[in-house]
């Protein structure tokens, strides 16, 4: 995990060092590990919300804001905003891609093991147990929600929802305790 963390740090350092002048060197350098190791991460670029954001940043901001001293195809724009927004978008993309690469290289077992070796041992144990409990809790929440819906008529909705939440949490706690006892893990 430490080498992926190192790679992430290097990529983040490159992201904050990008300027309009050095972008042609630093941006490909920062994205190269993603292209080699996790090319699927680039699918993120196909999201329409991200594309719209990029289009508005690079295409919209220089036309609407700043000192529009230059003209492109008859449209006045602010050149300093073109430079600034291009760098911003590149920086954002590098950070998003770097984090995507880092998290796809993580494994649950490794996180739990690494945390167990450090001062965060209790957190590692809690996370390991949480992963085991998640499917059970999901099923229990659905089951409790059906109970809640069948009982809610004619009651104060806020009091009823609080009461239902307390019941759900209490059941989750007791079930987690019994699950943990069965596995011989609770002291």
């Amino acid at each position: 995990m430490s080498r992926w963390l190192t790679l992430l740090c290097v990529q983040l350092l490159l992201a904050i060092s990008v300027t309009f002048e050095n972008q042609l060197i630093l941006v490909p350098l920062a994205l190269a590990p993603v292209a080699i190791l996790e090319p699927r991460a680039f699918r993120m670029l196909l999201r329409w919300r991200l594309l719209l954001f990029i289009a508005l940043m690079v295409g919209g901001v220089p036309v609407l804001l700043g000192d529009r001293s230059a003209v492109f195809m008859g449209i006045p724009y602010a050149p300093e905003y073109v430079q600034a927004t291009v760098v911003m978008v590149e920086r954002g993309l590098i950070i998003l891609m770097a984090l995507k690469l880092f998290t796809t290289r993580l494994s649950l077992e490794e996180i739990t093991r690494q945390l167990g070796r450090t001062r965060f041992r209790q957190f590692g144990e809690a996370f390991g147990l949480a992963m085991e409990l998640l499917p059970q809790m999901r099923a229990m929440a659905t089951e409790s929600y059906h109970e809640y819906r069948s009982q809610r008529r004619g009651r104060n909705p806020i009091r009823h929802i609080l009461s239902w939440t307390a019941e759900l949490i209490a059941r989750a706690v007791v079930r987690a305790e019994s699950y943990s006892y069965k596995k011989g893990r609770t002291g």
């Binding site: 144990e125 809690a126 409990l133 949490i169 987690a176 609770t186």
Partner: peptide, 8 residues
């Protein structure tokens, strides 16, 4: 155990 339950 409680941290795991509430975190979950």
């Amino acid at each position: 155990l409680y941290i795991a339950v509430f975190g979950t």
